[in-house]
Amino acid sequence: MASKLTVVASLPGEPVMFGADFHHFRIGLALSEDAVVVFEERHGVRLPPDYRGFITTVGHGGPGRFGGAGPFYGLFSIEDWEWALLGDPNVTMLAGPFPAERGRVYEEWLAEATPGEDDEPYRGTLALSHQGCGDLSLLVLSGPARGRGVDTRPGKQGPHFTEDPDFLSWYERWLDVVLAGERHFR
């Protein structure tokens, strides 16, 4: 993974991948194990092992407005976890189970995901990257879909689960798309 990122970062010319002009394929320094433990304890969650390994060995966040080398406008710092929330963030939001189910069709996503007045539809997710136009890529931290990636979508249908089984698969697929010279990632 790190070697592919090095190759992508050294490609000649201007980046052609959408959003890369924000991060230029640079990623911030990896987090210490202690910093990750503090984050997990503060929020009452355990990060999925592959994501945890990535941010403690490859890198974390970065120089762009929305973070470092990653899909769309770049990977957020874990401290920017709350980007997807519709309500006010609090430290317990990541521990609550994400209400979406893979394969389920929602007639009215928000009404079904938030039956209570104080419910947050994107609880249990950590924002990974900003796709533009208000859409985000998220990592599910809590609930049955733990470890899966989802994309927010406007409208009634609710979030869309990516084809990737975990964060590393999603990130490597993005690297492969960049290496293939593609302009967009989906």
Rank of each mutant, 00 (worst) to 15 (best):
L5G: 06
T6V: 03
A9K: 14
A9R: 15
S10W: 03
L11T: 04
L11M: 11
P12W: 01
G13Q: 11
G13M: 10
E14D: 08
P15C: 09
V16P: 00
F18D: 11
F25C: 11
G28V: 00
V37F: 11
V37P: 15
E40K: 08
E40C: 15
V45Q: 09
V45D: 04
P49K: 04
P49Q: 08
R52V: 02
T56M: 01
T56D: 01
T57I: 06
V58Y: 13
H60S: 15
H60W: 04
G62T: 06
G62M: 03
G64Y: 03
R65A: 12
F66A: 10
F66I: 11
G67I: 07
A69V: 13
A69H: 10
F72N: 10
G74S: 10
L75Y: 07
D80P: 08
D80T: 15
W81I: 07
W83F: 07
A84F: 00
L85G: 10
L85D: 04
G87T: 08
D88G: 05
V91D: 05
T92Q: 14
G96M: 04
G96D: 01
F98S: 07
F98Y: 13
P99L: 11
A100Y: 08
R102I: 13
G103D: 04
G103E: 03
R104D: 11
V105D: 05
V105I: 12
E107C: 02
E107S: 10
W109L: 07
W109K: 06
A111C: 06
A113F: 13
A113W: 12
P115G: 06
G116R: 14
E117C: 11
E117T: 07
P121C: 13
R123A: 13
G124A: 05
L128K: 10
S129Q: 06
Q131V: 14
Q131H: 05
S137D: 12
S137F: 04
L138S: 02
L139F: 03
S142D: 03
G143L: 00
G143Y: 00
G143D: 01
P144K: 06
P144V: 10
P144E: 03
P144D: 03
A145W: 06
A145D: 10
R146S: 14
G147D: 12
G147Q: 08
R148Y: 04
R148I: 14
G149L: 15
G155Q: 06
Q157N: 14
G158W: 10
P159Y: 00
P159Q: 02
P159C: 07
P159N: 02
F161L: 05
E163C: 06
E163S: 13
D164H: 15
P165L: 12
P165A: 13
D166G: 09
L168Q: 15
L168S: 15
Y171L: 13
E172K: 11
W174Y: 11
L175E: 08
L175H: 13
D176Q: 02
V177L: 07
V178S: 09
V178L: 09
G181V: 02
R183Q: 14
H184T: 00
R186W: 10
